[in-house]
Design a protein around this nucleic acid. Structure first.
Ligand SMILES: [Zn+2]
Ligand SMILES: [Zn+2]
Ligand SMILES: [Zn+2]
Ligand SMILES: [Zn+2]
Lengths: 129, 129
DNA sequence: AATGATAATGATAATCATTTTCATTTGTGC
DNA sequence: GCACAAATGAAAATGATTATCATTATCATT
C-alpha cells in the first residue's frame, strides 16, 4: 500500500480512491458511489464527486468521457491499454498499443502539445458473430 | 457547394448542416439551434438533435466532447483522419494516422475480427494554452 | 474538558444537455 | 381528395453534475 497520496486530503478521498482502485479500470462517479453503498460504506454522492474532482486536480486520477458523455475516472498509472470491441455482442479483447503510444507521443511533440493523453479503440465483428 | 450529402435526408438535415458549416469549427446542438433561431429559421431543438445524429451516423459530421461532456459537432472532410484536440481551448489539428490504420488492421486480423473500424484521438494542451 | 474557528460532509434542490412521448403536420402515391 | 408513412417539434422525462446550506467533524487554544 503506502500510497504517496496518503497525505491526501479530506478523509473521504482515500476511501473513494481505494474504491476506484478496487473497481479496476474506469468507473464513473455514480458507479463509485453505488459500489461504496453496496459495500456498506456510508458516503454521500456529493462527496464522491468532490473527492474525484480533487483527485483529478492532483493528477492522481485520470478523467475521460464515455461515448454518452458521462465522466469516467481511473487511477493514473494503471497499466494503460486498448480494446477491440465487437459491434454485435460487445465482446472485448485487451490489446497491446505500443505503436499507438509512440504515434501519439511523436505527433503531440511535433505539434507542440503538452500534457498529452490519447484514446484508441478498434471495433468490428468478432469471429463468433 | 454540390455536397455529396444532398441526397440526405429529411428536409431539416441540410439546413442544420449549412448552419454548422456557417458556424465554422465546432458547435454544440444547442449552439446550432440558437444560431438558427437568431437567423429567423424555424426549427425545433429536437429536430436539430435528430439531424446531427443522422449526420454523424452518415459520417458527414464528426462528434467530439467538450471538457464538460457536452457533445460538439463539425463538418468532416471525406478523407479519414484523426485529431489532436486541446483540452483547454478546443483547438484542433488534423493529423495523419497511417500508423494507426496499420495497427488497427493487423490487430483485428490477428484476433479474427471482420468489418473493422477504429477511433483514435490525441488530447493535450496546445502551445498557446 | 470546553470553546470556537475552519474545513468537510451530505441531503436536497437546481441546472442543463439530451432523450422520449405523442399529437400534429407534411410529403407521396393513388 | 384520401390514405398512409415519415418528419416535426412542444412538452415532459431522464440523468449526470453542480450549487446551497444546515449540520458535523477536526483541531488548536483556553
Ligand atoms: Zn461478437
Ligand atoms: Zn495507448
Ligand atoms: Zn489550447
Ligand atoms: Zn484511422
Amino acid at each position: 500500500m503506502a500510497y504517496c497520496w496518503e497525505r491526501w486530503l479530506s478523509r473521504s478521498n482515500p476511501r473513494v480512491l481505494l474504491t476506484l482502485e478496487r473497481a479496476g479500470g474506469f468507473a464513473s462517479a455514480q458507479e463509485v458511489y453505488h459500489l461504496m453503498q453496496r459495500e456498506g460504506q456510508s458516503i454521500g454522492l456529493t462527496t464522491v464527486y468532490r473527492a474525484l474532482q480533487s483527485l483529478v486536480k492532483e493528477k492522481i486520477v485520470d478523467i475521460m468521457r464515455r461515448e454518452d458523455g458521462e465522466a469516467i475516472y481511473r487511477l493514473c498509472g494503471d497499466t494503460h491499454h486498448h480494446h477491440i470491441v465487437c459491434k454485435s455482442c460487445g465482446d472485448t479483447v485487451e490489446i497491446e498499443g505500443g505503436v499507438v503510444e509512440k504515434w501519439a507521443k511523436s505527433l503531440a511533440a511535433e505539434h507542440g502539445y503538452r500534457d498529452v493523453g490519447h484514446s484508441a479503440e478498434i471495433f468490428g465483428l468478432c469471429p463468433k458473430c
